[in-house]
Amino acid sequence: MGLTYQSTGITSRENFNITCISNEPVIALAGNPNTGKSTLFNALTGLRQHTGNWPGKTVLQSKGTYIYNTRKYLVVDLPGTYSLLANSVEEEVARDFICFAKPEVTIVVVDSTCMERNLNMVLQVMEITSNVIVCLNLIDEARRKKIQIDTEKLSRTLGIPVIPTAARNKEGIEELMNTTNKLISGQIKPRPNLVKYDKKLEDAILHLESKIKPLLGDELSTRWIALRLLDRDTKLISALEDFYDKHKILEMSKEVMA
């Protein structure tokens, strides 16, 4: 038996039913409900997950793989959520996955006809990880409704790649795969422009961040953790305590080795 991917790391993927034998990069599909995540999943993997025009169709997390440029990728279709502030089980699942399973890339699937609402999710994911791609799905519907989106400008404003797609017609899939590949190989380096909060909150964040770093290292986004602490997100805090214990053990074993 060989070493499983990241089996030495703290953020164990096995907890999320993900076992990659080789080091297949993991790609998570997140986004609002009913934005076409499963349709995109099917377009990428060639599988046939059930899709349907109602929010909440996917309740079981599904996995599949695809091969691009001789490299194999593992795709995970997460349940649709309006936010990652963990008020519901789905939100918790999606958030824990992005935060602790640390997918190489998180593709946030966005409904192009309803950008404002969907950007809310994008901005939240960006706070957790910088390896984000926005997939402007349902672009055909947007065209039909005469909605034009300046993807260049959007990409610049957000600081991350933006790819328009129409997953149902397999439009833009190739480019999405290409961008994903480039991001993983380091050819693209996203620099997300994060949301600025008001002065009082920002000060508190800064103060907490300086205390989080020594405790947890920089495997997780300290800014995001600071925000969750301020928000008193109890579910995340207990997950963090777990994380902290494992982290400490690892640090100690490193010292022993040295």
């Binding site: 936010s83 502030l85 950008m115 404002e116 609402r117 950007l119 809310n120 994008v122 901005l123 939240q124 409704k145 005469k146 909605i147 034009q148 989106i149 300046d150 993807t151 400008k153 959007l154 404003t157 957000l158 949301v195 600025k196 909060y197 008001d198 909150l201 925000l227 301020l230 928000d231 008193r232």
Partner: peptide
């Protein structure tokens, strides 16, 4: 207040970005 602030800031960012990058023809 914290939660209100967080959600409000995120949504108003989203609102700003949208109005700067999206054009609805008719």
């Amino acid at each position: 207040e914290v939660r209100d602030n967080i959600v409000k800031s995120i949504y108003s960012s989203a609102e700003n970005i949208t109005s700067n990058t999206q054009y609805v023809e008719d």
